[in-house]
Structure formats: structure tokens, C-alpha cells
Design a protein around this nucleic acid. Structure first.
Lengths: 103, 103
DNA sequence: TCAATGATTTGACGGTTGTAGAACTGTCGT
DNA sequence: ACGACAGTTCTACAACCGTCAAATCATTGA
């Protein structure tokens, strides 16, 4: 069976922790929401629309990348982010798996 | 209409942040899993089974209580914790609601 | 080649956090 | 009343985190 192109249905312990950590900061969560609001979201628009410095934006997006919550596509001098919903579902599934059946 | 005894189907912004923060620490997550592994879990068993001090256990359970992820019942000198799965479902639902439809 | 724009990296700073240990409160048996 | 046990609170500390500013890298256009 070939390796799946999309996403693993389950997360490693390490990645589970990274996702939880990434979601724990309100600002980072807001950035993630913005990115998820469109099919693709240009990085410089995040810089325009959030009252934080470029460096901070870069820091947060790096964390989101590490967690696998977004992916980046470079096009010339621009970078476009895309929300990875598969990682999110994997996270919520792992959460419910660890904490028994939920309502 | 009377106030519901169980849990709100949706979380306030504040509570959403508290839950995300509470879930972001691996140790606290492990404590939550232990509590969720039974209908009720006595506090002193957490102290026995985790290699951290009493003070640290108390600190973490306090955070879990603040987030509404557990509830406590006192019985004499003992305290029993119970996982609140309703808060967890509310959290995952809010997460998916904020990030658009997911797989 | 040079200037301008987009993005990353580095260094520093203040606030937060996980942790231990000691002191304290509360409850049970004897 | 007293000692043992369960839990909380306080203090202190090292590590981490979000943030900015400045420097640096990368890419495009003139």
C-alpha cells in the first residue's frame, strides 16, 4: 500500500503535544482562524491585519508549521499559508480517544 | 426556561482559552487522562501515581477546575475528581466551528 | 546594480509557568 | 487533645514564551 498523500489518521505523541501547544495561545489561534477563512492566505496580509510585528507573525506561523496545522507555499517573494484540517481532525480524534467516549 | 444543570453547548471566549491552555501541558493532560479513566478519581491517587509534589498536583487540578474540564467532590478528608466530557465536546465543537467544516 | 518589499533570524526584555519545598488548614481515629 | 493524613497556599526559582526592534536573507522591478 502506498504512503498516503494527505495526512495520518492519528498523531504521534510529539505532534499531539505540538498541536495542543500551538492552539493554546489566543493570538496564534486567531492567526490560524484567519488562515482557515480562505483557501489560501498570504503571509503579508497577516502582517497587515494583526497588530503585531513581522517577527512575531513569523514566529507564530513557524510554530503552526511545526505542529502541522498549516502548510506553506512559496510563490516568488510571497508565501501563502493553508490550514491543514486533516491535522485538526486527527487532533480532536486523538483527544476524544484519550479521554474515553464523549457525548 | 430553567437554567441547564449540565453544561453549555458552547464556550465563552474566556473558557475556550482556559481549556486550550489547560490541555497544552503534557503533565496536565496526563492527569486529565487518569481522571477520565474512571468514573471518579481520588486526588491522593494522583499524588501517588505521578512523580510530582502535592503542591504541583494541586496547582494543576486547580487549572483544570478553572477550565471546567473536571469537577471536584469532597468526601470527608478526600477529594474526588470527575472528568467533564461535556466541556470537552464543547471545546472540540468550538474548535471545528472556528476553523470551518472539517473532514 | 541598486532600491524596495516580503519574510526569517537574532538578541533582549518582561511576564508567565511548572516545579519543589515549607508552612498552613482541615479531617479523621484513637 | 493529639498525631497522622489529605489538600491548599506561599515563596522562590529556573525555564519558557510572546513580543519588539534591528539585522539579515530573498526576490522582484527599475
Amino acid at each position: 500500500m502506498p504512503t498516503r498523500a494527505t495526512a495520518p489518521p492519528t498523531l504521534t505523541t510529539r505532534q499531539f503535544e505540538l498541536v495542543a501547544k500551538a492552539l493554546s495561545d489566543p493570538r496564534r489561534m486567531a492567526l490560524l482562524e484567519a488562515i482557515g477563512s480562505a483557501a489560501e492566505y498570504p503571509c503579508h496580509r497577516l502582517c497587515e491585519e494583526f497588530p503585531v510585528s513581522k517577527g512575531t507573525i513569523s514566529h507564530h506561523t513557524k510554530e503552526l508549521l511545526r505542529a502541522g496545522l498549516i502548510q506553506a507555499r512559496r510563490e516568488g517573494q510571497y508565501i501563502y499559508f493553508e490550514l491543514r484540517r486533516d491535522t485538526l481532525t486527527a487532533y480532536t480524534h486523538e483527544l476524544t480517544r484519550r479521554l474515553g467516549r464523549m457525548g
